[in-house]
């Protein structure tokens, strides 16, 4: 139960490892603090339990020399805080505020309680005749960055992929850009992570990550008729 990193589902995205590394950093820092503080706490409780003939020592902790006993650990906390944010900043920037060049853009429209997944088709443009919509199925090639445009028709939803370490709320009235790059072919679940009504539980899509050949095959099948 205590090795928390083991509980994360398998990571299959390029940036998932970096997010996991931030989680691991925080985990080991907080774990050390947990044992340290509770260790001191437990030691004090046993060492200074009430015994006959011994009275407590009057320590007000107001003088700087006394207060330093805890001001120093507090300063260490501050340093660790900055370390965590310093490590986290670039990861956040990579995942959320930058967009790598992509060849494939897919529009995901959430509605109570389905995902409508729209491909622009061979011409790469939305709003043309060769657009194809799939319900609750997202097909992508492995090893290629994919750009998503997230929209909602009714309430706030959230597209979540545990394996990609991807999560983004979808707000009606906005087209929110996002991206990911999968590293391993397979079939993964895409649940909705924001309460969106009575069908929230069970609202999910499937993410199919294909090898390049398989993806091309799938594209050919879907757009063969047009």
């Amino acid at each position: 139960m205590l090795n928390w990193m083991r509980w994360l589902p398998e990571n299959v995205s390029t940036y998932g490892g970096e997010i996991d590394a931030v989680i691991a950093l925080i985990y080991y820092v907080t774990l050390a603090w947990f044992f340290l503080t509770l260790g001191v706490f437990g030691f004090f409780l046993i060492r200074y339990r009430r015994r006959d003939g011994r009275r407590a020592t009057y320590v007000a902790g107001e003088r700087l020399r006394e207060a330093a006993w805890i001001l120093v650990p507090v300063a260490v906390v501050l340093v660790l805080d900055f370390w965590i944010d310093l490590r986290g900043g670039p990861v956040w920037a990579k995942v959320k505020t930058t967009m790598p060049p992509t060849e494939l853009t897919i529009q995901v429209t959430a509605k109570q309680f389905n995902w409508e997944i729209l491909y622009p088709g061979p011409d790469g443009k939305f709003g043309t005749e060769d657009d194809r919509q799939f319900d609750n199925e997202l097909h992508v090639p492995v090893g290629k960055p994919v750009r998503l445009v997230l929209k909602s028709k009714d309430v706030i939803h959230s597209l979540f992929s545990p394996n990609l370490r991807f999560k983004q709320d979808i707000v009606p009235g906005r087209a929110i850009p996002a991206w990911f790059e999968a590293t391993k072919p397979g079939k993964y679940e895409l649940p909705c992570a924001e309460l969106c009504g009575f069908g929230h539980s069970g609202m999910k899509a499937w993410l199919y990550v294909h090898s390049p050949e398989e993806y091309q095959k799938w594209v050919n099948e879907q757009w063969a008729s047009s």
């Binding site: 503080t37 200074y48 407590a56 650990p73």
Partner: peptide, 27 residues
């Protein structure tokens, strides 16, 4: 994120002060 993590500083102080109150006490 930075302001949030900063909040751990005053609370760390309070929690440490609680533990330090036990030091050399007669519990």
């Amino acid at each position: 994120s930075i302001t949030t993590i900063l909040i751990s500083v005053p609370f760390a102080y309070i929690m440490f002060a609680m533990i330090a109150t036990l030091y050399k006490g007669s519990i």
